[in-house]
Each structure stands twice: as C-alpha cells, then as structure tokens.
C-alpha cells in the first residue's frame, strides 16, 4: 500500500554512524553459518526475492522474453522453486516484459534518466509516466546525487515526492546510489529523506557504479527502515542491488535482515535482490543441497 508523503525530516533527529563499529557489525553476519534445512529454506526464499534484471543497451525484446520465462520458472525441472519477485527492465522493454509475465509477477522499470539521473525533473517524471503506462507496476528511480551532495536535500525530497505522484498506483523504489554518497551518514540521511517522501522501497545502487551494494551500507539502510517504522508505524522495503552475485553472500544479507528487522521483512513484499547472475548460483546451491553434488555453471540456462 502506498502512503502520502511525510514532512521533510530533521537531520538532527538521526543518530550519527560510526564507521568502524558499523563495519564490524556487518562482518559479524558473515560468521553466521547456515546448514541443512535452514540453508535450503533461505536459498528458496532468496529466489522469490529476486528482481531479475537486464539493463543493457543491447537488450532486445527476445532477450527480455527469455528472461521473463526464466524469472517465472527459474528451474524448469523443479516448479516448486520461485518464481522470482519481478523482472526489471528499461522503459522501452516494459511492454514486452508485461506481456510475457502476464500479471504473474511484477514488472519493474528503471526510470528518471537511469543511471545518472542527469536530466530535468520534468523529463524524468515523464519517463515514469511512460513506463507506468507501458505496464510497469514498480518504478526504480535514481536520486540526483549531485544536488544532494551540494546540500540541496530539500530538492531531493521534492523530486521524490514528484516521482511518487507520477507513479500513481505503482510502487516506487528510490535508488540512492550509495557508492557516490561518500559517507554512511549521508546514506542514512538520504534514506530518511526518501522514506519521508513516500518511497515504498529504498535501494542501494544502480549497479552501474562501484561500489554497489555492500553489507555495511545495507545495514545502515535497514537500521534507517527500522527506526522509521518504530517512529511512524510504516514499513518500507529494502533492495540491495549490484555486486550480489553468489548465494553465500545473498544468505548473509537475509541473515542481516532477519536480525535487524525481523521475519516480517523476509518476504518479496519487503525485501528484494537486484541481481542478474545471482539466480543461477542460488539454483546450483539448491540442487547441491538436494543431491549432495556440486553443480556446474553450465547445468543451468543463462536466460
């Protein structure tokens, strides 16, 4: 369910972030050891949280269709796996994706001059409207990092409010592009602005900038979500994206969500992975758990 925006937040109300302590805490999640049934459950859960993504200049309608087939049924031999939560494409490919998935899973579209965000708000809002009209029910927007870093936080707030309005019924995921925000305190502040402006999800990265998602930066955002929920009663979703390419890392993210936000966030409604190559590693690990044998990359189709 979408919400009306809250007033522009007060930065002084946010706790500062200690980089050393934060990174230590994030590293602790990596020492959790998932075995047997716990591992299997988490692997299967991770598949259902995937935003299966293709964002290339070379994308074709055929490629998008193939990806949609993969997202709907990731492992043709085992219908109990998946489907993924959504497919995520450029606006021009939304129509093809929407036809292919036919309402069975979500269609997300990046918009607002992804990935740079370097365009006037007018054109960026128009892009959202176009994507929604083509059939997207989720919009992944990027904020204007330059404006944010120049100190115009209120401008970012207004920009997100405008995008949210343009989304209509579609869910809005706000990409902070944390790799360009320089400090964890900035990530915390940008998260707060996005949530108050009405973001349904906050998302780390476009995947086009390095570093993309990391455990510490995701931890900052999860704690922001937790504190926002505590204060307003509103749940906001989280989507780390970029750089999560293997199952082991994905499970570490899930452990972190479980320990910071609790099991109520462990559904595709509130947590997503933005990834393209993660799907097959999850499938390999699931089959390894089932058969006891390691699988080759070539055992699963790419698209």
């Amino acid at each position: 369910m979408s919400h009306a925006p809250l007033p522009f937040p007060d930065r002084r109300s946010l706790p500062p972030i200690d980089q050393v302590g934060l990174e230590e805490r994030a590293a602790r999640f990596c020492t959790r050891s998932l075995k047997k049934e716990t591992k299997m459950e988490a692997l299967r859960l991770a598949v259902t949280m995937l935003d299966v993504t293709t964002l290339e200049g070379a994308d074709t309608v055929e490629k998008v269709r193939q990806m949609c087939a993969k997202a709907l049924r990731p492992d043709p031999r085992d219908p109990s796996i998946g489907p993924a939560a959504a497919v995520c494409v450029y606006p021009r490919m939304v129509k093809a994706a929407a036809e292919a998935v036919a309402g069975r899973i979500h269609v997300a579209s990046v918009a607002t001059q992804f990935p740079s965000g370097q365009m006037r708000l007018k054109e960026r809002v128009a892009e959202i409207r176009y994507a929604v009209k083509e059939g997207a029910d989720e919009i992944d927007m990027v904020i204007s990092r330059g404006q944010f870093l120049q100190g115009d936080a209120r401008g970012i707030y207004k920009e997100i409010v405008a995008c949210k309005e343009a989304c209509g019924e579609a869910h809005l995921k706000v990409i902070l592009e944390t790799g360009e925000l320089a400090t964890y305190d900035n990530v915390r502040w940008a998260s707060e602005i996005a949530m108050c402006a009405g973001a349904d999800f906050i998302k780390t990265s476009t995947g086009k900038v390095s570093p993309a998602a990391t455990l510490p930066v995701t931890l900052v955002m999860l704690q922001a979500i937790e504190e926002f929920h505590e204060r307003t009663g509103r749940m906001v979703g989280m989507k780390p994206a970029g750089g999560i390419s293997n199952a082991k890392l994905a499970l570490q993210y899930l452990v972190m969500v479980r320990e910071v936000l609790g099991a109520s966030w462990l559904t595709p409604d509130w947590f997503r992975f933005g990834a393209s190559s993660l799907t097959n590693d999850l499938l390999r690990q699931i089959r390894k758990q089932e058969t006891g044998r390691y699988q080759m990359a070539g055992d699963f189709s790419k698209d």
Partner: peptide
C-alpha cells in the same frame, strides 16, 4: 531450525 522463525540448524 526454520529460517523464518529465527532458528539455525546445528
């Protein structure tokens, strides 16, 4: 040991 209920398998 359910992941969703907060457990860990040994």
């Amino acid at each position: 040991h359910s992941f969703l209920s907060g457990g860990f398998a040994p």
